[in-house]
Design a protein around this nucleic acid. Structure first.
Lengths: 138, 138
DNA sequence: TTCTTGACTTAGACAATGTCCAATGTAGGA
DNA sequence: TCCTACATTGGACATTGTCTAAGTCAAGAA
């Protein structure tokens, strides 16, 4: 059993076949899939899995902090299973691919109190945009 | 005529009543509206304006760089008319309100060559998330 | 092992946002 | 004023996500 599944079981999750395949799809790769892509890959192993189940499962994984929801372009959200290590994202403006990166420094440091307007700030995300090598070549 | 309309005319834009009201809605306020909100406000002045026209006009304003598209939550994109001055965004996790902020330092500086994976990086956006004073009080 | 139960899954309707197209209208130049 | 290329319209369609009622099943109890 993968680390992810083990952690889920430790949390008292009811482990169904559907949740297992969703967790495995996320755990198995380091690409960030959309909900639809997760569904397609899960359905390859468990054909009768419903779209709603994939959405439910992803939402729960997000709410317990095992997965991060990434919304870079206003289209489908993507799901990032690498929630346990702080990181930022590098997005290809052409194909939408997302890659994890680890910049130095704390982005919160750049925002002085005078620029916080009474907000209680909990975190900062940095999104780098550019063109990936594949799109640059094509 | 507002600065925005003037710049658009300088670019050879065909100035129709519809484009005028869309530009005026964006120019008049410093809130970041969704396409639907822009449409509602434009329709208040020009009732017969079509949704498609608002989308078309917003897309063009984005493509010529007069307006920035902001996608913070995977729901509706918001349109930020303040494209001429570099800034970042502070988002309320509860109500979705967006506020412009001006942090110090260049976010690109934190990403060394070894973390760029062959991408040609064009820019970096920082999104600060937290709770706004209104939501904290409520 | 079998039973029980509440949580999980399903299918499909529905909602929100955005895109596309053919028909019609019009801004701005000749 | 008239033309015509470009803009607008309205509505169908696409994509992504949410909700609900009814059926199903994992896991603890006996």
């Amino acid at each position: 059993m993968s680390d992810l599944l083990e952690r889920l079981r430790d949390r008292g999750w009811r482990l169904t076949a559907q949740r297992r395949v969703v967790a495995e799809v996320l755990d198995g790769d380091h690409v960030h899939y959309t909900a639809d892509e997760v569904h397609a890959r899960a359905a390859a192993r468990l054909p009768e899995i419903a779209r709603a189940t994939v959405y439910n499962t992803l939402s729960e994984l997000v709410s317990i902090g095992e997965v991060i929801e990434v919304s870079t372009d206003g289209r489908a959200k993507r799901y990032d299973p690498n929630a346990r290590h702080s990181h930022q994202h590098l997005v290809c403006s052409k194909c939408g691919t997302i890659r994890d990166v680890h910049p130095s420094g704390d982005p919160l440091a750049g925002l002085p109190e005078s620029e916080r307007f009474g907000f209680t700030i909990s975190d900062a995300t940095v999104t780098y945009r550019g063109t990936c090598p594949q799109c640059a070549a094509g």
